[in-house]
Simulated assay, not measured.
Amino acid sequence: MEEDIILRELEYKAVRSSGPGGQHANKTATKVELSFDVSNSEALTEDEKNRLHKKLSGRINKDGILKISSEDSRSQHANREIATANFLSEIKEALKKPKKRKKTKPTKASKLKRLKEKKRKSEIKANRKDPLK
């Protein structure tokens, strides 16, 4: 993943933000929508593209475009920065390879402890039986 190339491939669109805000919200486009074409990106390898499609399948549309929006701030510039930061963190998280599990064996002490407890349980149950039979 080449971050500087990805940042050049991003497309931003400013739209009117929803919710309250009065006159300011009615005349300024402060919400920022970020679009990234995962399928046609030159910064990602095919393996990375496949991993992103798999991990972010709910956020990527059928055209292969990942969309993220931000309307946290009243400033378009701040929302652009927030959307970019959120996008980069999502991409990095999705591209992380999970660690392989190392197989471990139980220790000798844990085996002995298990067998000791098993023996104790069986003795308890054996003592419940009627001695006349």
Rank of each mutant, 00 (worst) to 15 (best):
P98G: 09
N79V: 09
I82M: 00
I60W: 11
A83E: 06
S122R: 15
L88A: 00
I65W: 13
A94T: 06
S89I: 09
S75N: 00
E2D: 14
M1D: 06
R128K: 12
S75K: 05
F87V: 06
L52P: 07
A14Q: 03
L115C: 01
A25W: 04
R51N: 11
S122M: 14
S39W: 11
L112F: 09
K100R: 15
K121L: 14
S89M: 11
I82S: 01
I68T: 01
K118R: 13
K121S: 12
L115R: 11
I82Q: 01
V38W: 06
P106D: 03
K54N: 12
K67S: 05
I5V: 14
N127Y: 07
R51S: 10
P98W: 11
K125G: 11
K13W: 01
S70G: 05
N26R: 02
S69F: 10
R114E: 09
N127R: 07
K103Q: 15
I68P: 06
H53N: 14
K102M: 09
L132G: 03
N26K: 01
K119A: 13
V32L: 00
D4R: 12
Q23E: 04
N79D: 01
L66T: 05
E3F: 10
R74V: 03
Q23M: 08
K96M: 06
G22R: 00
L112Y: 08
E3W: 14
E2Y: 15
T104C: 07
F36E: 03
K116R: 12
K108Y: 10
F36M: 05
Q76G: 02
T104P: 06
N79E: 02
L95N: 09
R8M: 10
S122L: 14
K125D: 13
L52S: 04
K99Y: 11
S89E: 13
E123C: 02
R16H: 04
K118Q: 10
S75A: 03
A78L: 09
I68C: 05
I91H: 01
E2R: 15
P20K: 11
P98H: 11
L112M: 13
N127W: 08
A14W: 02
R74D: 05
G64F: 05
I82C: 00
K111L: 13
I124D: 12
D72M: 07
K99W: 08
E48T: 06
E3T: 14
R128Y: 12
K54D: 08
S70I: 02
R74G: 02
S89H: 09
K49V: 07
K119S: 10
K97Q: 11
